[in-house]
Design a binder for these strands. Structure first.
Lengths: 239, 239
DNA sequence: GAAATGCTACGGCGACGACCGAAGCATTCG
DNA sequence: CGAATGCTTCGGTCGTCGCCGTAGCATTTC
């Protein structure tokens, strides 16, 4: 197989601490500037620029020029999925040293955050649990499906699922979706197209909004009511 | 998040050409000796030993001592899944230079091989296609499910699916499974517990057997008949 | 017991690459 | 038009790591 070199290059690009920090910061699906990424990684802009050029050249990142800024984002969902899977291995191999350092910022991240294109943290897990409990979704570590009642439920909640219905399998009338292991909660939550649809709709109608410049997500009072009353999800904003 | 260092270390370990070769060779789920892995990677045993110690220390590999040999294998399915996901990114980013160099060995690999614990290559794709065509499996790039008729079909074919039935979701009576993108065929095939069950059963009853010391798989005449007549899979042993 | 095999620890060499300072291009603002 | 901002390119330094040769330990074989 000739692609061994490319495989190694991709893994090596992900394997430098500074680049890993940048990729991690990009995992919420937003586009960040080179300066922001440099700050996240704790390196100078020159060094960050070099890293970004390399990752873009290989195709891990895509760049969009806007004024004097250059916005970088993950080039494809498969890249996000790869980072997830590496993170999952890291989570499994993590020794028992206390799991994650606790800080104010981390607290917000654990409460609710985005994971590339869907919700994670306690919010993501709570929503997934609620959907499973009501029979709207079935979920295992290998795969998930949105049931017929789930399709109707989401449609009723205003979440646009038409694109997903187009790709659903003929016989089932159900939409397959992807499970995603949350690294802070160590629980499954809802990824894939279904999770993305819920997340983007929540942002669009103001159930949630992004917090400053991080992956953290704020649940608005309106969203809190919807999630509790309509979705039936119970989660506390503080652990 | 404190696990950034571990994330980077895991990716870096996968990112060296020699180590990548070894991990790749281990992706069929078998356990190989340090010497075999050294030969695969094209390095001396001393160097390979160093690599293996490091990967084992972190937890990517597990070792089993047997006489004067030390057998190394991937430590967990999540590691195989991670390697798959990196390979998928590599496949997507591969420039148009002709896909894979053709050689006698490669031809056998493209016909039928194992992918950690299930079938890949034309055999894997053909089996997945046939199961989908008969309504036994539904498959998208995000997830897959084994339908009720699929459960009965596999049971009738003698494939042990009891362990999977134990983890199936209550309401559906269906077993979720994992899709896996084949890097040579660029098509989905059947991974996860369902794919593993089919593969191990095929090996056990002699429908297939491993070819010398590689990932390549030979379909026996008996297996060829079963796959064609019972599964309804059509695939040619030469492209 | 001695030789052979498989693997691992040690030491040194060589190269790749991560990093920053200085300098140069684009873009925006006053 | 200058000044400021954001980013990139270039040169040079330094640390890390992949590699092998030698040597040493375990296990098997004769």
């Amino acid at each position: 197989m000739a692609s061994n070199a490319l495989f190694a290059e991709i893994a090596a690009l992900s394997g430098d601490p500074a680049r890993a920090s940048m990729l991690h910061a990009l995992m919420d699906g937003r586009a960040l500037t080179a300066g922001e990424l440099a700050r996240v990684a704790g390196i100078t802009p020159q060094t960050a620029s070099g890293h970004l050029v390399r990752m873009t050249a290989v195709g891990l990142l895509s760049v969009e020029k806007q004024g004097r800024h250059r916005y970088h984002r993950l080039a494809a969902p498969s890249v996000a999925h790869m980072l997830e899977s590496i993170m999952q291995v890291a989570t499994e191999l993590e020794p028992d040293r206390k799991r994650f350092t606790v800080g104010p910022r981390d607290a917000a991240l654990r409460t609710a955050r985005t994971c590339y294109d869907h919700f994670a943290g306690r919010l993501g897990v709570a929503l997934a649990d609620a959907l499973v409990a009501h029979g709207h979704v079935e979920l295992t570590s290998e795969a998930g499906i949105l049931t017929q009642t789930g399709i109707e439920f989401l449609r009723g909640a205003g979440v646009d699922i038409e694109p997903m219905l187009a790709q659903r399998t003929k016989r089932s009338g159900r939409v397959l979706c992807r499970p995603c292991l949350d690294w802070s909660e160590r629980r499954l939550h809802l990824g894939g197209a279904v999770g993305a649809a819920i997340c983007s709709h929540s942002m669009a109608v103001g159930w949630t909004r992004r917090l400053d410049g991080t992956r953290a997500v704020l649940v608005t009072p309106k969203g809190d009511r919807i999630f509790r009353e309509t979705f039936g999800a119970t989660f506390a904003s503080s652990p």
